[in-house]
Design a protein around this nucleic acid. Structure first.
Length: 254
DNA sequence: AATCGGAACAACCGCAACGAT
DNA sequence: GATCGTTGCGGTTGTTCCGAT
């Protein structure tokens, strides 16, 4: 169902996430939050790009993500919201607690698009039973409009002031992100990356896109990197830490 | 049993928005 | 106001699953 894992030319891992990677990312974000997605993979001991980590967390690992079948109510809500908002999946997701924009988007394309189309056609046939073919044409046109952006949909710039609604972004999540904590420099990496992936390797200077930059971590890195500078400026505290039973369990498993 | 095609969904990519400097 | 770095969004792709033939 997912792409086989592979490494790109920069040594960044792509494709399906392993359980171990999931555990590392989950443990890290739950403990320290995502203070900086770009830097996060380095500290979490992941050879993924920050963008990939963010996506994985948002769509899969976040504790408030509801998985499983969509209820009839959810389906109807999505169809209704899509009529109002168009392909504003994040907006739609904000109205459906526990569902991610990616998940809703997939669900729409595989299930609801067809159903919405049928509903529209049938309702228009009821309204104008004498001209079915015309209705179908209209329906198709309307559908394609909805696929882009409806005329009455406000621009993204205006509408999307808040990335996550209170429903989807649980207090848990917003708390984490708002804290912007960096890991304690002495213990974080060792605990998270106990498999030795990050802690014992020599890391070369890497030049690449900020999203795809693979993790690098050694003593030099920790001395020079962002978290330490933040520490020096008093922006974060090295002493604060989130304690979570899950983490404990995770470390026990490791 | 083999194969084919559509469904399902995780993940990638490019771009725009936004905040900081 | 311009530039740069970071984040988030939406479109698309790639792989696996599964039912039909």
């Amino acid at each position: 169902m997912v792409k086989a894992p592979y490494y790109d030319k920069n040594g960044v891992k792509k494709g399906a996430w392993s359980l171990e990677e999931d555990n590392k990312l989950r443990a890290y974000v739950q403990r320290y939050g995502h203070w900086n997605w770009r830097e996060l993979p380095k500290f979490a001991g992941l050879s993924r790009c920050g963008k990939s980590c963010r996506l994985r967390w948002m769509n899969y690992l976040r504790p408030d993500v509801k998985r499983g079948k969509y209820t009839k109510e959810e389906d109807e809500k999505i169809i209704k919201l899509h009529q109002e908002l168009g392909n504003k999946w994040s907006k739609i997701a904000a109205k459906l607690p526990g569902r991610t924009d990616n998940e809703i988007k997939n669900h729409w394309h595989t299930h609801l698009k067809k159903r919405a189309k049928e509903n529209q056609v049938s309702s228009e046939v009821k309204e104008h039973p004498s001209d079915i073919s015309q209705c179908e044409t209209i329906s198709r046109n309307r559908h394609s409009e909805a696929e882009s952006v409806p005329a009455n949909a406000p621009s993204r710039h205006i509408l999307e002031s808040s990335p996550l609604s209170p429903e989807t972004s649980s207090s848990y999540y917003s708390t984490l992100s708002s804290h912007h904590q960096a890991p304690p420099l002495s213990s974080g990496i060792n605990q998270i990356a106990e498999d030795g992936v990050a802690s014992s390797e020599t890391f070369d200077e890497f030049i690449g896109d900020f999203w795809t930059e693979p993790f690098v971590a050694d003593s030099t890195f920790f001395q020079n990197s962002c978290p330490l500078s933040l520490l020096n400026r008093g922006l974060i505290s090295p002493c604060v830490s989130y304690y979570d039973d899950d983490i404990d369990l995770f470390y026990q498993v490791m």
